[in-house]
């Protein structure tokens, strides 16, 4: 289990991380979301020891993370980087060995992950000659090649084609099923919602929400879609416990606070004319995210 405990890091006037605490359990996929500059990358760098925090600590299985432990972590940095003139397979073998694998195991693992991530035909190509997406696959293979006990991936899905996204999602699920805690950040909230067991939302360095998507939902009420084609603009503005999200093609999407009776809403809708639809939805992670972070800082 990975525990991040009260981590703070300041860069000049910017508080990149402000008392950030959360844990990632074995077998859990933890999604880390937040706006640009919110502090995701900084937190992950602290976990990997690349950045020293001003305060707080990172623990692994209850002990502060030391160098031999960290060597068994798998890391995909935000700023991708590989030796540009080294060939794909050589690179993977080298990194596997640096993480402690012996020569044979390193070769086997490098071949395995190159094949798994669709790089077999590029095994002997210099990294600098690969397309960006393929370089990204090599980078992912580099994070996975030593069979890490923890995965920390900074925006692993960016730059991948749809098929590669599916492969990576499958790989992450599989690693998690093998008992590995997986921490990854992403701006693709639908993906995070689909994949993750738990989500942490960070804003301006502070972890403002943390928990399973259903837990986050529990406190957030529901999304109500009312299909009232003749309703004038602003018909729902005065209703108690209701926020208008948007109006589109005569359909009004409303945010209903938990515990609000929906019958007065239906009555108000009917008062404007015919009502063709009246459906409750679970709010998506994207909607929850906007709730938490506030529309202003979208």
């Amino acid at each position: 289990m990975l525990e991040v405990d009260g981590v703070s890091k300041r860069y000049g006037d910017v508080l990149a991380c402000d008392d950030v605490s959360f844990g990632v359990r074995p077998g859990e996929l933890f999604g880390f979301v937040g706006g640009n500059g919110a502090g995701k990358t900084t937190t992950m760098r602290v976990v990997l020891g690349v950045v020293t925090p001003d305060a707080g600590s990172v623990r692994w299985s209850g002990h502060p993370v030391d160098h031999p432990t960290r060597r068994r972590f798998g890391y995909l940095p935000e700023e991708r980087g590989l030796y540009p003139r080294m060939r794909v397979l050589d690179q993977l073998v080298y990194l596997a060995e640096l993480h402690g694998a012996d020569v044979n195991a390193a070769h086997r693992a490098a071949e395995h992950w190159a094949a798994r991530l669709g790089l077999r035909e590029h095994r002997d190509t210099e990294v600098q000659r690969l397309s960006l997406g393929n370089q990204q696959r090599v980078q992912l293979a580099a994070a996975l090649v030593h069979d890490p006990v923890l995965l920390v991936l900074d925006e692993p899905f960016s730059g991948l084609d749809p098929l590669a996204v599916d492969v990576l999602a499958e790989v992450l699920r599989e690693r998690a099923a093998a008992g590995v805690p997986v921490l990854f950040s992403s701006h693709q909230l639908d993906l995070v919602e689909r994949l993750c067991d738990r989500v942490g939302i960070i804003q301006a360095g502070r972890l403002v929400a943390c928990g399973s998507v259903s837990r986050l939902r529990a406190g957030a009420g529901s999304t109500l879609v009312v299909d009232a084609p003749l309703a004038p603009a602003g018909w729902a503005d005065r209703l108690p416990g209701v926020t208008v999200l948007d109006v589109h093609n005569g359909q009004t999407r409303l945010r209903v606070r938990p515990g609000t009776d929906d019958q007065p809403i239906l009555a108000a809708a009917l008062a404007t004319g015919p009502v063709r639809g009246f459906t409750h939805h679970h709010p998506s992670l994207a909607e929850l995210y906007r709730d938490v972070v506030g529309v202003g800082s979208r």
């Binding site: 990997l48 020891g49 690349v50 160098h67 960290r70 060597r71 972590f73 890391y75 940095p77 700023e79 991708r80 980087g81 590989l82 030796y83 540009p84 990194l95 640096l98 993480h99 580099a142 994070a143």
Partner: peptide, 17 residues
């Protein structure tokens, strides 16, 4: 400089001192 400019140094230093 090559390791620094290609940013490979970040994964290296997450592994080695």
């Amino acid at each position: 400089v090559e390791e620094k400019s290609s940013r490979v140094v970040e994964i290296l230093l997450a592994t080695v001192r």
